[in-house]
């Protein structure tokens, strides 16, 4: 089974509290933040590797990121993917979800054909959850997102459960499919030392705008139907009064606070 996994390098979600907006320029300051594989993408990769173990085939990583993100793709190869395709071009910068999906869909077609495209349902940074559906539309594949369970048979039949509010929806269809994976689906494996060694010899292809044969006006900020305006850092700061004393005294103060808020009668 030929499987593409869309991988997005994101700033480590554990460090989002350090992100600032430069007051002078209004631009996001994300320097010094570690880059990691988008957490849900690891679950997509795990699902792909399990399918490959069952049915054979290959697992290719595809993503759009600056060239410096190659290390993150190397990590995906260490986890077990066979090769990586990194779409990297200054023209791709500032893309919204649709302009990003155009690049990804083109790369999937060029690197393919693939029977299955898996990705995390949501990215930790932008978090729109648009990409699985939009890549599916641009490829002309049926697609589902928020996938929490799936069964795919070698002859291409698929039964997929997608999470909904307090429940799930189960659908049946045939490959090719694009599926947006949630963390409930599986537990990603650890990187093994053998994987790290093997990754050093696996191919990472870097593709530019020209390599993909895309129109400059359809990608990046220029090709994005949504355009960004001002950035804000929401001011959620409150007075932060420190309650001091032994636990019992603190508890008495807290009961007082509850009472004045109309709780506890």
């Amino acid at each position: 089974m030929e499987i593409a996994v869309l991988l997005k390098p994101v700033p480590d979600p554990a460090q989002y509290d350090k992100i600032q907006i430069d007051p002078a320029t209004g631009i996001l300051v994300r320097k010094g933040l570690k880059t990691v594989i988008n957490p849900e993408d690891k679950h997509a990769l795990e699902a792909a590797l399990q399918l490959k173990e069952q049915h054979g085939g290959r697992v290719a990583l595809i993503g759009m990121a600056p060239a410096s993100a190659v290390e993150t793709f190397r990590e995906g190869l260490a986890i077990g993917a066979d090769e990586a395709f990194l779409c990297s071009d200054r023209a791709f910068a500032g893309a919204d979800s649709l302009a990003t999906s155009r690049v990804l869909a083109k790369a999937i077609n060029k690197a393919g054909p693939f029977a299955l495209v898996l990705c995390g349902s949501t990215s930790a940074d932008g978090g729109t959850a648009h990409v699985p559906s939009q890549v599916g539309e641009l490829l002309g594949f049926a697609h589902l997102t928020h996938v929490i369970q799936m069964e795919i048979s070698p002859d291409g039949r698929a039964t997929v459960r997608a999470k909904m509010e307090n429940g799930y929806r189960e659908s049946r269809g045939r490959l090719p499919l694009v599926l947006g994976i949630r963390r409930e689906l599986n537990t990603p494996r650890y990187i093994s030392l053998m994987g790290i060694m093997a990754a050093q010899g696996k191919p990472v292809h870097v593709w530019s705008l020209n390599d993909l044969g895309l129109d400059k006006g359809k990608v990046g900020l220029a090709g994005s139907p949504t355009q960004p305006g001002k950035l804000y850092q929401p001011d959620m700061k409150r007075k932060g009064e420190v309650l001091q004393g032994e636990a019992r005294e603190v508890a008495q103060r807290l009961v007082g606070i509850f009472r004045s808020a109309g709780i506890l009668g």
Partner: peptide, 21 residues
């Protein structure tokens, strides 16, 4: 919702228009 996060981007892609999440 789970459904809305699928339906809205699908429609935006079909209409080639912008969607804010």
């Amino acid at each position: 919702t789970g459904a809305g996060e699928e339906l809205a981007p699908t429609l935006a892609a079909r209409l080639s228009t912008g969607l804010a999440a």
